[in-house]
């Protein structure tokens, strides 16, 4: 259960990595090293040719992974091994088009069969009732995003069609590291928490242990993507880089696994 995995963690950090970078075997090793470093859950991003919600780092990661030969069918061959090698939830992030190519229901069912517990779709249709119902029937969490611009009425609609956790987007913009984060995030998270018992995790722009600590004062978890991928892409040993980066973010002196 994704919600339990987050709630049961003192410092729930969810690392995001792009699948297939530098290769599929390396992705499997990185997943295990992130688990060892204390991840609460792991989000793996499926590379897409046109990632319109992503900043430069994740665009580059997507592009490189596709150049290295990533395919959805190739992923299906590895997913089962990845999920059985860790005792924390694996979540898939994908733009909607690759999921639709062979039917979204069939693709999500195949993810579930391979142990994937949740899915995040950044370009979900604005009316997502059908996909929400589909995910419920299949038995996979549909994690929804709430943005700083989201109105209260829209927030209610989104949260009512959300499971696993609510993904609070910290800033207006695309993914990527930012110097500072707006103070309104705390109010945004409190607003969401007043509407739901689901855990609320914050993502977009987080890159330091200090930011992680600040956010965890009011949120249940944080998601770290671009910062981690930048380190992974810039290091000759991406497995160790992934582990060390996550350790730095979770911080010293605190027992990360209960």
């Amino acid at each position: 259960m994704i919600a339990d995995a987050i709630k049961n963690k003192t410092k729930a950090v969810i690392p995001y990595i792009t699948a297939g970078l530098p290769g599929m075997d390396a992705t499997g090793e990185i997943i295990r090293s992130l688990r060892a470093a204390g991840a609460a859950a792991i989000e793996i991003g499926l590379p897409f040719s046109d990632p319109m919600a992503d900043g430069p780092v994740l665009q580059k990661a997507s592009h490189l992974a596709l150049k290295n030969g990533f395919t959805l069918e190739g992923l299906m061959e590895h997913l089962g091994d990845w999920t059985t090698s860790i005792d924390i939830p694996l979540i898939v992030m994908s733009y909607i088009n690759p999921l639709m190519r062979r039917g979204i229901g069939e693709t999500l069912s195949r993810f579930r069969d391979r142990g994937v517990q949740g899915v995040i779709i950044p370009d979900l249709p604005s009316d997502a009732r059908e996909i929400h119902a589909l995910c419920r029937d299949i038995g996979i969490d549909l994690i929804r995003l709430v943005a700083p611009t989201t109105t209260l009425q829209r927030q209610e609609e989104v949260i009512s069609q959300c499971s696993g956790f609510v993904y609070a987007v910290s800033v207006k913009g695309v993914t990527g590291v930012r110097q500072c984060l707006p103070g309104e995030v705390a109010r945004q998270v409190q607003g969401i928490k007043a509407m739901t018992d689901l855990p609320v995790c914050i993502g977009f722009g987080i890159s330091t242990a200090e930011q992680v600590n600040d956010m965890l004062a009011f949120a249940d978890g944080v998601i770290v993507g671009s910062h981690l991928m930048e380190r992974i892409m810039g290091d000759p040993n991406p497995v160790i880089a992934a582990h060390d980066t996550l350790r730095e973010l979770i911080g010293p002196g605190i027992e990360s696994i209960r």
Partner: peptide
């Protein structure tokens, strides 16, 4: 058709 966009843009649309 439809609106397949990041959540941030929904109010703008």
């Amino acid at each position: 058709g439809g609106q397949y966009v990041p959540e941030t843009l929904i109010p703008a649309l």
